[in-house]
Design a protein around this nucleic acid. Structure first.
Lengths: 334, 334
DNA sequence: GCCGGTCGTCGAAGCGCTTCGACACTCTCA
DNA sequence: TGAGAGTGTCGAAGCGCTTCGACGACCGGC
């Protein structure tokens, strides 16, 4: 409350102690008597003191900020990104860190800049691709980093993601349990497969393997995102595979259109065709009928990424690869 | 390239000048001879120098970081937020600033914290509500701020937004030009109106006034976001208003379901019912048929917000209120 | 009753940068 | 030809914090 910007020196004077004592109260790096601590803390709240971030970063060589690097490309799962982002922010705050948002606009230069200028202590990268330009840079950076997603060559990096192969397999298993014998996967748009985005391929692999393991008939198709294209895809699919009775949809933007197409084609869900989606919970719940789904645990992935990067900051060794187990929620569509 | 973390002193020595000279080359705050400047810049790139952000912030009292404060509530337009966010980041970089991401988790404490600790120089708040807890705090903060959206009492604040009233009116006008005489607005879920979110109400007001001005018949309804609810709403609407031939949809999440419901009810778009949406371009383009729409200019709003906050940082006076004109893109649905 | 240990606190030295005042030059114009 | 007005550069004083070494005060053990 006293004339703009309170410094640690003012707190020290107010409490009748040395500046360093106040610092130690705050950091807990040396023992301080209960009595002194009380007085210091009282002064801090009486004066409304907030340590100056720049000074702290300069003296301690820690900014207490981590970078969150967004992708910025067509076809990315925009709504999911926002949930990752806020999960990361929330998790970072628990470790007393803030989050700097970086887009890919600047390319790798932005990453280099914030790291070299000590603006951030560590990095979390979202939506990593198999062949990601940012990855080589990370290897040579002294700052620790964690990737959400898997590049082609993850050796020496720390990666977190939903276990998409297990998710694909889990959907197949669920449909098999329900007695379906011929099923299909509608995945990402073909451009996403071509770009080599990891999660799309891994889901498909998990799907294909599980289909074989369960002795089912199965087909995996890419899936565009406009209603007309989806309508055709679904129509042809049902036509070519008359025995088909189960559908796995791994494409958030297409889920609604797939259901609309089935309605149009007079197939009732789940009576004629059972549908399992891999998508965020809210999308599955809002659909009609509400979809049995494997949720994409954005919050958990974000939290885990932050936990790992903090461990690395502390100098601890962490596993290269963290795959989060899929969780299937049964709803009205199967 | 030389042993971890290059300082301005090393650059100065390498170039054979004083530290302050290097600083002035970088900031341009004093004239430096072309010759010296060259030498300094060469040394900078030879050594790979990046100024330490903490030291800079400490000495200059400017962190060159702005805070982007997200809302975090049910019913918010998640995908649009992401586009605002990346527009803000991109725009901030043009002013040589970075963006710190803040969620509402911490409430107003987070805003207070980053401002008081000088972590950020200024704030941009997204998705402001009519009655927003964060607003009173902003008034007492010395740091400049800009709001995206309008609170009930915007006096003394700087606000930017799409002119939703004009957008609502623009849609009506377009339908009137096409000869429609009885039209309806399907807006946000009722909870959003109750919360008093500005943009929903303003669109409705613009719609209602324009309907009167053009001597049309019109009705404005809230619109939930599940297919079944939307189906009922649309069915009842068409039943109660047999002459209705135009629909304005201002609800991104509902657009797909509205079209599916019309299909289901055997109404052809645009032949039986013309549809205009207020939504991001990509949603309008992906719909089937592609929708005539007033786009929500996320990029422009973000850019403008950053421009304004930078002006305020420079001490310049800016208008309290900036309304961005709506732009109608005609597509296949009208 | 003296010595070695803790414990709690202090003072001072930076961290890497910006900025202010000073100073040596070089022009210009009376 | 000399005063006055720029130019271009330097040195040093901070900015607010953390951290290191030092140093009393107090403790228990012999």
């Amino acid at each position: 409350m006293s004339g703009r910007t309170v410094t640690i020196a003012q707190v020290a004077k107010h409490a009748g102690v040395a500046v360093s004592t106040v610092s130690y109260v705050l950091s807990g790096k040396r023992t301080i008597s209960a009595d002194t601590r009380r007085r210091v803390l009282d002064s801090i709240s009486a004066l409304g003191y907030h340590p100056n971030a720049g000074a702290r970063a300069l003296a301690s060589k820690r900014s207490n900020v981590i970078a969150l690097v967004l992708p910025l490309r067509a076809g990315m799962h925009v709504p999911v990104l926002m949930r990752f982002a806020s999960a990361v922010v929330t998790a970072a705050r628990r470790f007393d860190h803030d989050v700097l948002l970086l887009t890919a606009d600047e390319g790798t230069a932005g990453i280099r800049r914030v790291a070299a200028s000590a603006l951030v202590d560590a990095l979390v990268l979202m939506d990593v691709e198999l062949d990601d330009r940012r990855v080589p840079l990370l290897r040579e950076l002294p700052e620790p980093s964690v990737l959400i997603g898997f590049p082609a060559e993850p050796a020496g990096l720390t990666c977190v993601d939903l276990d998409f192969a297990a998710a694909g397999a889990r959907c197949v298993e669920h449909l098999a349990e329900r007695g379906h014998e011929e099923i299909a996967l509608l995945g990402a748009p073909s451009v996403v497969y071509e770009r080599g985005t990891g999660f799309a391929r891994r889901t498909r692999e998990g799907f294909v393997e599980a289909v074989e393991a369960h002795g089912l008939k199965g087909v995996a198709l890419p899936c565009e995102e406009t209603f007309d294209e989806i309508y055709e895809t679904v129509r042809d699919l049902l036509h070519d595979h008359p025995g088909l009775s189960g559908l796995v949809v791994h494409n958030e933007a297409a889920v609604g259109h797939v259901l609309a197409a089935l309605r149009q084609l007079d197939r009732r869900v789940p009576h004629d065709v059972a549908v399992v989606a891999i998508c965020p919970d809210d999308v599955a719940e809002r659909a009609s009928p509400p979809l049995t789904s494997v949720l994409i645990p954005a919050e958990e992935v974000g939290r885990e990424a932050v936990r790992l990067v903090m461990e690395k900051l502390e100098g601890r060794v962490v596993p290269d690869s963290t795959l989060l187990a899929p969780l299937l929620a049964v709803r009205a569509s199967t």
